[in-house]
């Protein structure tokens, strides 16, 4: 016969060890993590409860910052290195506004009004700075090779840090603010702190989901994220939509700044880099570009970090940055697309 021989073969496919080993290792690591959490819970139940509360509180903050990363990445594929530092600036603005201008000291129910003022101001501040950065820098680099906007973001991050380091802003050491918390304490956690964070964060997250999923703006955002040219042809204002995304991200960072200041009662110029790294890890953990993922990732990392710092078998806060980094590396190896993300391959 001269027709092509395409009748099928008896060859056995090779058994591949790689994926199996990878899967087994991944499961082992996961099991170890679960085991670690469980023995923490068994050996120190009180610390465990406290850590979970702290983790929730910090995780909510991380989620707010992570959302800013994930949205900007989702729409223009830029890791906005300056985002963490924007958050840091917002925390300084919040501190100065609440303590120096509005005279907040002991936190009581009367603080609610200054809090709302600070939230509004800081969110506006964050949005304004982020949109300006987009307008002045990133927008001009949209057609440039990817390295250029990335480096610009690094440069801006540097500028923000440099500004915060000035003595008349925050100085180059940690600055403690005379803000005092009261109320009940469970396992070393101020209940009101946790409540405050949740009360502010949850509505914000819901609002964000609503905006992206339901509104016209949100639809435009998703369209631009998929295909800028296509969106433009469909009459969507691409520049406006991208600006809007930056504004949302900046506003969230602003809100996170206020909360961070109130929770930690201190400000530091290096917070941005540290927390930014954590928040980005959270975004990657959840699947970058995915809003729910960012929130879940933020809370997860918050919990792990809190357990590490306060749990019975934790390594202590000296190593928290390293722990987050190890999570990031493990993620990169085993599940770079994150929990909710989809694996993407370049098309030819």
């Amino acid at each position: 016969m001269t027709a092509l021989a395409i009748g099928g073969t008896n060859r056995k496919a090779k058994i591949r060890l790689g994926p199996i080993v990878e899967r087994v290792l991944g499961i082992l690591i996961l099991l170890f993590a679960v085991y670690w959490i469980v023995i923490n819970a068994i050996d120190g139940p009180d610390q465990f409860v406290g850590s979970v509360l702290v983790g929730l509180q910090n995780g909510a903050l991380y989620a707010l910052v992570a959302l800013g990363y994930t949205m900007v990445y989702g729409i223009i594929e830029l890791i906005n290195f300056a985002h963490g530092d924007l958050f840091m600036l917002a925390s300084i603005v919040a501190a100065n506004l609440m303590v120096n201008v509005l005279g907040v000291g002991d936190l009581t129910t009367a603080t609610i009004l200054p809090l709302i003022v600070a939230l509004v101001v800081c969110m506006a501040f964050g949005a304004f700075v982020n949109v300006s950065a987009e307008f002045l820098a990133y927008r001009r680099l949209r057609t440039a090779p990817k390295l250029a906007p990335l480096m610009t973001a690094v440069g801006l991050s540097f500028v923000f840090r440099g500004i915060a380091q000035q003595d008349y802003i925050n100085g180059s050491t940690q600055k403690n603010w005379p803000v005092n918390w009261g109320g009940p304490i469970i396992e070393g956690v101020y209940v009101y702190k946790l409540l405050l964070v949740l009360v502010v964060t949850i509505p914000l997250l819901l609002a964000m989901t609503y905006i992206v999923a339901r509104t016209r703006r949100g639809k435009a955002m998703r369209a631009v994220a998929q295909d800028q040219d296509g969106a433009r042809l469909m009459g969507i204002n691409v520049n406006g939509t991208i600006s809007f995304t930056f504004a949302l991200g900046g506003a969230l960072a602003g809100a996170a700044g206020v909360l961070y200041f109130l929770v930690q009662t201190q400000t530091y110029y290096d917070t941005g880099t540290q927390l930014g790294l954590i928040a980005f890890t959270a975004a990657v953990l959840g699947g970058i570009g995915n809003l729910t993922g960012a929130v879940v990732g933020g809370v997860a990392i918050g919990l792990v970090q809190a357990l590490n710092e306060g749990g019975a078998h934790g390594l202590g806060s000296n190593w928290s940055q390293s722990l987050v980094f190890i999570i990031l590396i493990v993620l990169m190896v085993f599940k770079p697309e994150g929990i909710f993300g989809r694996r993407t391959t370049e098309k030819v």
Binding site: A137, M151, T152, V154, G155, L156, S157, F158, V159, F160, R161, G162, I163, Q165, Q166, D167
Partner: peptide, 12 residues
């Protein structure tokens, strides 16, 4: 003291 700011701006 402004070296951070200057270097960052320069990069941008």
């Amino acid at each position: 003291r402004y070296n951070f700011v200057i270097l960052g701006l320069l990069l941008v």
